[in-house]
Each structure stands twice: as C-alpha cells, then as structure tokens.
C-alpha cells in the first residue's frame, strides 16, 4: 500500500520529464555555441594603394602626416619635414635605414613607441590620423598591438584614426 502511494507521488513529477529532456538537449547545444571570450573590433581605413587626386598642397603642408612603418628591426617614423623631431631619422629608404625605435629583447618596443607618439601628440593636439604600414612578413598580432598602443585612452586619445598603407614606403 505504502509502495503504491509512493509510486503515485512520483507520478506528480512525470509531466516535467519531457521538459527535462528538452533542457538536457539544449544545454550541450548552447554550450557548443556559447562564446565565453569577448570579441572587440578596431576600425581601420582601407589601405592607400592607388594614388587618387592629390590633396590641397597648402592643407597638406600644415598637417603632421604621421606615418609609422613596422619593419623587422623596429618602428620607423615619418612626418611632415616641418615638424620633424631630433630623434627621427626620416630616411628615404625606410626598409634599409635603421629604425627610430629598434627592437628590444627581440620584440618591438611598444612602450617606447607609445612615448614617442605622446611626444608628437603634445605638439599636435588636434591630430588623430596615423598611417600605418608594415613589411610583408610582419604578423597581424604586431599590427594590432601597434594600433592599441597608438590609440591612447578615452580621455587622452593619441592617434586613433588608423589608415593602413601597403608595404613600407
């Protein structure tokens, strides 16, 4: 009699079993599709490859025109010659000339890169544009790190508007 009563009590849970089955199927499915790493984006302008109509020379003359090249040896800076800083080599052949910021401990010196950008930003508060180029075999990871270090913070931005350029100029 007691067994019968207990079995009857168990029957109360029965309507939940199909739902349980459904939930048990949904959990592995969602676990497979779930993303636990948050993905972020960095906006970039298209690479400058073809030469379009030339910009107004007078306007260009007043701009910083900051270009940073990432080579296997380090970072090389190029700016409007009017705003050249003493530590800038500004060699015409960036690929063969020594970098302005050489690699440190076999890695690119991002901290120094950031310091140099801050130095440039101090004299050009309104500038946000940075043209970034790299040698063909420079890895995507290095490019992203360079973009991160050149962006600055929300309150203190450096050069967040990045335009990629093809190869080393």
């Amino acid at each position: 009699m007691a067994i019968k009563r207990r079995a009857e009590a168990n029957m109360d849970g029965d309507p939940l079993i199909p739902i349980m089955n459904l939930v048990c199927m949904l959990i592995p499915l969602l676990l497979y599709g779930a993303v636990f790493i948050k993905f972020m984006t960095i906006e970039v302008n298209s690479p400058k490859i073809s030469s379009g109509a030339p910009a107004d020379p007078q306007e260009q003359d007043e701009k910083l025109n900051l270009t940073v090249m990432i080579t296997d040896q380090g970072f090389t800076f190029k700016v409007n010659p009017k705003f050249r800083l003493p530590w800038m080599g500004m060699a015409t052949d960036a690929a063969n000339a020594g970098p302005d910021i050489p690699k440190k401990d076999d890695d690119w010196d991002y901290a120094e890169f950031n310091r140099k950008l801050k130095e440039l930003k101090e004299s050009h508060r309104e500038e946000t544009q940075l043209i970034l180029g790299a040698e063909d075999d420079i890895k995507y990871d290095v490019l992203i790190k360079a973009m991160d270090w050149s962006r600055g913070t929300g309150e203190d931005p450096l050069f967040p508007a990045v335009t990629l350029t093809r190869g080393v100029v």
Binding site: F39, M40, S46, I49, D137, K139, Y140, L143, L164, G167
Partner: peptide, 26 residues
C-alpha cells in the same frame, strides 16, 4: 602576414567594401 591582410583589404575594397573592422579578443 601583413601582405595577406593588405591583399584581403584590397580585394574587399574592389568589391565595394570600404568599412573595415579588425576583430580581436578582449
């Protein structure tokens, strides 16, 4: 390689894509 990135961006640009967002993990 940066070369592949520029090739992909150039090709996408030719196919009328002109707004690029690089994706990376936080």
């Amino acid at each position: 390689n940066y070369r592949v990135i520029t090739e992909v961006l150039y090709t996408a640009g030719q196919a009328e894509f002109n707004n690029f967002l690089f994706v990376a993990a936080e």
